[in-house]
Design a protein around this nucleic acid. Structure first.
Lengths: 146, 146
DNA sequence: ATTGACGTTTACGTTAACGTCAATTTACCT
DNA sequence: AGGTAAATTGACGTTAACGTAAACGTCAAT
């Protein structure tokens, strides 16, 4: 009689709203492969518990994964993301460390602000192109109505 | 007597505000390597004139390069950027082509909007971390004043 | 005539971020 | 108990976006 550990109900206390997740669960939920998740762990971005040999993920791991994927969408490298995660847990700091963090934070902020401008420009450009396309289409479809 | 062609003055008409640029000029201006510029050309993102064997860049090439680098900052692949450039010159369109473009444009817009949200979240998170760091620093520096 | 700064092509090397087996173990269902 | 689906580690493969080096041509200045 092996209790089902991975998704949901633990033997000790019965929580119907799942609290433990298998690697497959996470993969599906986030639309990535298990390989990717293991790779992130190998790079030090995740550190799930183990039940024997199997990985057991929980809410904190999900939150991290969210952070990671958000970082990726913004073009950060995994190393950079790892740094940011490290900063989250940074009450541990010595003074030097903290000053270093503040610098990095400022860098990241600058970069994000730059990106924000880039997005504005690009959205505007895309809208212009879109408009052009629609006009062309109007012309062409008019012609083809003869 | 060989006229200097690359940067600025052509023999025929004297324009004091440079109109032609060497690959080195561009590299320096944009802070990238010549290798990178040639690579972009090889991937079909640039198509400079030639004076003999040498590449001659002009304003339009600069504008393209700006577009390329902006795209890169947003995490677009070179292929995606090439597509966008193609869309710029898209009066050439057949109907199918135009519809395809409109779809792609919508994709890109969605993605940019997502990124915009991600930036908000990340900036907010970074500000919180920054605040935490500053507080820790205040504590530590107070302690070290004894 | 040589030197030095720049340009050219060709080609192989490198790194990040996974994909893709393969061989094996574990979990779950009947 | 036995079969199948899912998990594990390990290893090699792959792609994009350049880096780097070699081997050479061109031109201006010394």
């Amino acid at each position: 009689m092996h209790p089902k550990i991975a998704t949901g109900e633990r033997p000790e206390q019965d929580q119907s709203h799942s609290i433990n997740f298998s690697i497959g669960d996470l993969a599906q939920e986030f639309g990535i492969t298990t390989r990717t998740i293991r790779y992130y762990e190998q790079q030090g971005l995740l550190d799930p518990e183990r039940h024997g040999i199997q990985r057991l993920y929980q809410r904190r791991d999900k939150i991290r994964l969210k952070l990671i994927l958000r970082g990726k969408r913004l073009g950060f490298s995994l190393v950079e993301i790892a740094e940011m995660i490290a900063m989250y847990d940074a009450e541990s700091g010595e003074i030097g460390q903290l000053h270093y963090f503040l610098e990095r934070i400022d860098d990241r902020k600058q970069r994000l602000i730059q990106q924000s401008h880039d997005i504005e420009q690009t959205l505007a450009a895309l809208s212009r192109i879109e408009q052009g396309c629609r006009e062309q289409l109007a012309v062409l479809e008019q012609h083809s109505r003869d």
